[in-house]
């Protein structure tokens, strides 16, 4: 059976999806990147290969996420796309008619405005991580609440407290202050959810025309507390797609199918999971910029190089000497 592989390597999670030709999701995988994108991608590839390697033939590969260039080298990608486009492509297939996409991941959050199936506006967080999953993770940790229970707890709140949401540092000191005053944990947790939503809307969503249907996706969409706070803010229900936390990877499958319509795939095969990928780096002393050059070796052969501002090293035939 022909199938497509989509890989989304973000700062917090590495997601892999296998989709068949009828756009059915055969397998989805959500792994922690833990600062080691090479290992995360290879272990995902290994698990998929063992499970499905006999049954399917990969006809196309798409990659996205902040580590997309690296991932493209690891797996051999046919489509390399930014996260905005990948998410929008997935939504226009999975939730036809959607006009707004709220996407909150580990380190970044974005809003995508769509009309008639195409992106007309978007924004990504720039200032700080206060509106993202990492912030919630960190605060849950501080309150000794498992992140999975965070949302349910928020729903039990009677009087959510107001917590400053502008910046993670302000929010944290404000939260501690409220704890010391004796507010209940439920009220504080609900207050945090509201603060995150307020921050998101004032920052990422500022000036955007948010119309329904609104789709909410990314890892944070699992948090019912946040979902509730958004629904209150918009006064309407949000759509959370079935595969909400791997939508970027799904978009990649669709993009991979598009990219391989008239050409064979560049997929390196399941065996790429066993390859020895070794990143090395050196500081270029050619000018005062002192660029940090990254080199990727595949089984001792140099296969990619980047990080230079001037483009001198990106050409891999240049010798380092």
């Amino acid at each position: 059976m022909k199938a497509y592989l989509g890989v989304d390597v973000g700062s917090v999670s590495t997601n892999l999806v296998i989709m068949d030709e009828n756009e059915e999701i055969i397998e989805e995988m959500y792994l922690r990147t833990q600062g080691q994108p090479v290992r995360a991608v290879q272990s995902g590839l290994k698990m998929l290969g063992e499970k499905l390697g006999q049954k399917i033939t990969i006809a196309g590969v798409g990659v996205t996420g902040s580590a997309r260039s690296l991932t493209a080298v690891l797996v051999g990608a046919d489509a390399i796309k930014n996260e905005i486009t990948a998410h929008a492509v997935a939504v226009s297939k999975m939730v036809p008619g959607a006009q707004t996409i709220l996407e909150i991941g580990g380190q970044d959050s974005k809003i995508i405005i769509m009309r008639d199936g195409i992106v007309i506006d978007f924004a990504m967080n720039t200032v700080c991580a206060a509106g993202t999953g990492s912030f919630l993770d960190h605060q849950a940790d501080r309150l000794l609440i498992p992140i999975e229970k965070f949302g349910d707890l928020a729903l039990k709140a009677k009087n959510p407290v107001r917590i400053a949401g502008r910046c993670a540092v302000f929010a944290e000191s404000d939260m501690i202050h409220k704890q010391q005053l004796g507010h209940s944990t439920e009220d504080i947790v609900a207050g945090l959810c509201e603060a995150l939503v307020r921050n998101y809307l004032n920052n990422v969503g500022k000036g955007k025309e948010i119309l329904g249907p609104i789709v909410f996706q990314g890892g944070v969409a699992a948090n019912v507390g946040i979902r509730d706070a958004f629904e209150k803010a918009f006064n309407q229900e949000l759509i959370i797609p079935k595969h909400y936390n791997v939508m970027g990877a799904i978009g990649c499958c669709l993009l991979a199918r598009e990219a391989t319509r008239n050409k064979p795939t560049s997929f390196k095969g399941w065996k790429a999971a066993e390859y020895d990928f070794r990143p090395t780096s050196f500081e270029c002393k050619g000018c005062p910029n002192l660029c940090e050059i990254i080199q990727i070796h595949e089984n001792d052969v140099l296969v990619a190089r980047w990080g230079d501002r001037c483009g001198k090293w990106s050409n891999i035939s240049v010798k380092v000497g």
Partner: peptide, 14 residues
């Protein structure tokens, strides 16, 4: 680059 790419995609689609 991510923002530029996404912006360019948007403009092409339009």
């Amino acid at each position: 680059e991510t923002r530029l790419e996404a912006f360019i995609d948007l403009l092409y689609q339009r």
